[in-house]
């Protein structure tokens, strides 16, 4: 009977304390920053912790949040989706154009289009083995062009009689629909990631794609799934945009993909894939949103938001790199 001396098993669990603190920082760093910023805001500004401010913060960030959720899954496989901003713009135009037929048709068509675009991205990436960066960059251009064509290079007004704008105006128990969608999406996303094979296999592919293939995981199908998810959620964000602004705007959504990537990475998901969580992306979205929110309280120019977000992102990536290097060394 093979019995390993306990010392071997002992040497198998040498997670050094610093490594544990490091991995905690990496995972919860965004949450710590969020709590600190919230405390500062609460002390400094009147009305910061008001229901109004919180609901507005969530409503404003619902679109980024949905896009960042899809992006989280894509990035966890080791991929990237640059087309989300353009897809959101296209979806807002489609939703606005179809708004006379009611909210269901408009949202359904918009989200359906996003899903198809995502599927197409995934198909190109897996079938022709094209880098996700290139594939989705091409789709960014294509979707943006399609949005401009459909909208004839102008904003498309939403038909206010069709009930579509209710999405932006109404809600349940004072919580606006976009915020409900955001919260439901994150709860579902978290369950999918942690309790379904699809979710676990997403992480496995990002961690070691060759191994995932050798283990017999349906790698291509899972990749199709994450890009479709990303496209669908981006389109949902576009539908919300149309509902909030009463217009389908083909030129909106510029740089949203980068904001989403920033939120995902700030949250602690590894840009190279394999490690990530849905909850921390939510924290990342809130954190970036909070920074803008506080800048508006400070009456600082909105241009600062970009600078500060940039600094933040860089800081997080450098930190992540350092910490993950240490974790590997400790292993």
């Amino acid at each position: 009977m093979a019995t390993i001396p306990s010392s071997t098993a002992g040497s198998a669990t040498p997670a050094a304390p610093e490594a544990r603190i490091g991995s905690m920082l990496q995972r919860q760093g965004a949450l710590i920053a969020l709590v600190v910023l919230t405390c500062i805001g609460a002390l400094r500004y009147n009305g910061f912790i008001s229901t109004y401010n919180i609901v507005e913060l969530l409503r404003y960030n619902a679109m980024f949040g949905l896009i960042a959720l899809g992006m989280t899954f894509v990035i966890m496989t080791g991929g990237i989706d640059l087309s989300v901003g353009a897809v959101a713009a296209l979806a807002s135009v489609i939703a606005a154009l179809l708004s006379p037929y009611g909210a269901t048709v408009a949202v359904g068509a918009a989200v359906g289009t996003g899903l198809l675009i995502g599927l197409f991205n995934g198909w190109v990436i897996t079938r022709f083995n094209i880098a996700p960066f290139i594939t989705t960059l091409a789709m960014l251009l294509g979707a943006r062009g399609a949005a401009l064509l459909l909208a004839k290079n102008a904003a498309v007004s939403v038909d206010t009689a069709g009930g579509y704008v209710e999405i932006g105006l109404n809600g349940v128990l004072g919580i606006p629909f976009p915020v409900i969608m955001l919260l439901v999406a994150y709860v579902l996303g978290s369950i999918v990631l942690n309790y379904t094979r699809f979710g676990r296999h997403v992480l496995a592919i990002g961690g070691n794609e060759d191994a995932a293939r050798l283990m017999g995981l349906p790698v291509d199908r899972i990749k199709l799934g994450v890009y479709a998810l990303s496209g669908g959620l981006a389109a949902l964000a576009g539908a919300i945009l149309a509902a909030l602004t009463y217009t389908g705007i083909p030129t909106e959504g510029l740089g949203w993909e980068l904001t989403a990537i920033a939120a995902v990475v700030v949250g602690g998901t590894l840009l190279t894939g394999g490690i990530g969580s849905v909850g921390t992306t939510f924290v990342g979205v809130l954190l970036l949103g909070l920074i803008i929110n506080m800048l508006s309280f400070e009456n600082l120019s909105a241009y600062w938001q970009s600078v500060i977000r940039g600094v933040f992102l860089l800081l997080v990536v450098v930190l992540q790199n350092q910490l993950s290097g240490k974790r590997k060394a400790a292993a």
Partner: peptide, 18 residues
């Protein structure tokens, strides 16, 4: 070793037939 280093031991054993 052709496993997924970031994932847990049990996941690596049961990956694909959890």
């Amino acid at each position: 070793v052709n496993l997924v280093p970031f994932r847990s031991v049990s996941e690596n054993i049961f990956m694909g037939r959890e």
